[in-house]
Nucleic acid binder design. Structure first.
Lengths: 342, 342
DNA sequence: CTGAAAGCGCTTACAG
DNA sequence: CTGAAAGCGCTTACAG
């Protein structure tokens, strides 16, 4: 493989001149620049990434820590990953991916060995074990998801509280007075998936303020359990006219459940989910939903991370906690409650 | 950050001795080894990956090239990625992920800059543009998917021909005489997704040999088009009693379609899909299917790749083309054709 | 069993 | 505008 030395020899210049000609970091005569460029083409030269990293302390690689937990819906994770990966590439960075169960080990390996310039953490938990490691690391980090302690990292997340309020208010406005909210499994909460109770608490509070009833339950993240869960909760609350879903698996399972029960949305039941538009298309979900914007969140995290990496953010620019405002995508699955049941 | 020099100083030995004490590549006195280990702990030393890569020409990183094409079903891709990622980690390798549209560019960047020791290609096309680049690269490559020309790479794929035969034979044995096969979109074929016609041709041939009818159609990979496609083909062939699916989106959409039509499997229609067990669980698909084993294929590709990387495979050990034999996972969606229609 | 030195392939002050 | 040299942090022959 050709080295900068080969390029220099072919171009008849010193290695430093060859390097500067390529980086543009100092003035180079047109003649020399052309000869260097010709040599690069002739030799098919590409800088050795390891050598460059060693010399510059920059790897142009961003770590991406994703965990595929048993109780989360894997396809939803993928979209965050793609958001991160796509934006990183746009900014000139490659992605070092870890799907390791033990995120702390993966993070430590990546940061300690200087394989990466910065890291994006997905599946952030309330008290995420990876955060102390990240704070101690020399590289900056950005999170998708809100931990209890945001010090030292940039944080991006959907405003799940606003999402909960939005769901409830939307159905309240349409005349609904009894709602069901199906959240992620309780394990997710126990593990520290704060978004579950953030949305749920806000929804409950909004229902209280509006003086309407909200039955909040946790649902499985898997089939066929979630189908049974949905049937059970619909059986348990025959007076409910609106269904809110903060659970991707539930959304994916609902069409079948409604068919089985002979129900149609919005005629018999109004439905609002919380998932991405991409998700809705992939699974042909006909329900109005709060857009969870995974690609946007992943992209925002990377953009801010890169600002930190290149020093554009300034050494003492405070870290950000940025919430994306939820938007309701209307797919026509909500309407007035069935006659005589409002 | 601590360097090997710091470790050496704290341990009171030379840098080379510190290095050897850690690598175990030459005999070290117990006393020295202990001092070095203590110094490592004290300083929290981890080798700099770039420096090590430069010195050893090994990065301990494997490239993973995945493309998320518009006409493929993204969640199915994820499982191949996880198979690769998990096995790589087990073998001590990290994953450099590219989801770039332009796979040739990504591959060239990774190989030319020596960021990786080897590469796994997903979504391999019949005449894959990335292959010439891979063959010219100094790093070995493994593919998941069968190209027309397998020279210079190790290839792993499901035996789609056998899968096609298996589907047809299974239903033939149960007494079916008219079948429908819904494949991936025709674009996939045009782009070189050989697995589509490999399965389809084998299924057609098996049907011919058995003297039964097979209607082969291409279906969309997206909702809601695929739902319409399914309805259209069922309308067009009212005499068909068996449905074969080589199209993940079709499988995911089928429950709804069958409900809409008031059909049940296997009473009204026998169904056999081709997807992974994980996929079936995620989407609660109640259909018997040919297990596509994405995690297994990804793992096999990585294992063979690592054999090449570490030189275990021998410089002139011929490259392999290995087909995983399809297995039918019985989920009870096939049976005898409805009375009077066999 | 251990150390001094060379070298991996870059970048970048330093000098002219 | 260009070059010679040092240095990034490792590993590994070479020498003892």
């Amino acid at each position: 493989m050709a080295t900068i030395g080969d390029v220099a020899r072919v171009a008849g210049v010193s290695r430093s001149t060859a390097s500067y000609a390529l980086s543009g970091k100092r003035a180079i005569s047109l003649d020399v620049r052309r000869r260097v460029e010709a040599a690069v083409r002739e030799l098919g030269y590409t800088p050795n990434a390891g050598a460059r990293a060693l010399a510059t302390s920059q790897t142009m690689v961003i770590g991406l820590l994703a965990q595929f937990l048993e109780d989360e819906f894997a396809p939803a994770m993928l979209q965050y990953m793609l958001g991160v990966s796509t934006t990183a590439r746009e900014l000139g960075y490659d992605i070092l991916l870890s799907t390791e169960e033990d995120g702390t080990r993966a993070l430590r390996r990546m940061t300690d060995s200087r394989m990466i310039d910065g890291v994006v953490l997905l599946n952030v938990a309330e008290n995420d074990e990876r955060l102390p490691i990240l704070r101690a690391a020399p590289q900056p980090g950005a999170l998708v998801g809100l931990p209890a302690d945001c010090r030292g990292v940039d944080v991006f997340d959907l405003d799940f509280e606003e999402a909960g309020r939005l769901m409830v208010d939307h159905l309240h406005r349409l005349g609904h007075r009894e709602l069901i909210l199906v959240s992620q499994p309780e394990h997710v909460v126990e593990r520290g998936g704060a978004y579950v109770w953030r949305l749920q608490n806000a929804a409950k509070e909004a229902a209280r303020v509006r003086g309407i009833t909200l039955h909040a339950v946790f649902g499985s993240s898997h089939q066929p359990e979630i189908g049974r869960d949905l049937n059970a909760v619909l059986d348990a609350h025959p007076g409910a006219t609106g269904l809110l879903l903060n659970n991707e698996a539930a959304a994916a399972a609902l069409p079948t459940v409604l068919h089985q029960r002979g129900l149609a949305a919005p005629q018999d039941l109004s439905v609002v989910g919380r998932y991405s538009d991409e998700f809705a298309r992939t699974f042909s979900l006909p329900y109005s939903s709060i857009e969870s914007a995974p690609d946007r969140l992943g992209g925002m995290a990377v953009r801010q991370l890169v600002r930190r990496i290149v020093g554009e953010a300034g050494p003492d620019e405070p870290h950000v906690v940025r919430f994306v405002s939820p938007e309701l995508v209307d797919r026509g699955s909500t309407g007035a409650p069935p006659a005589g049941r409002a």
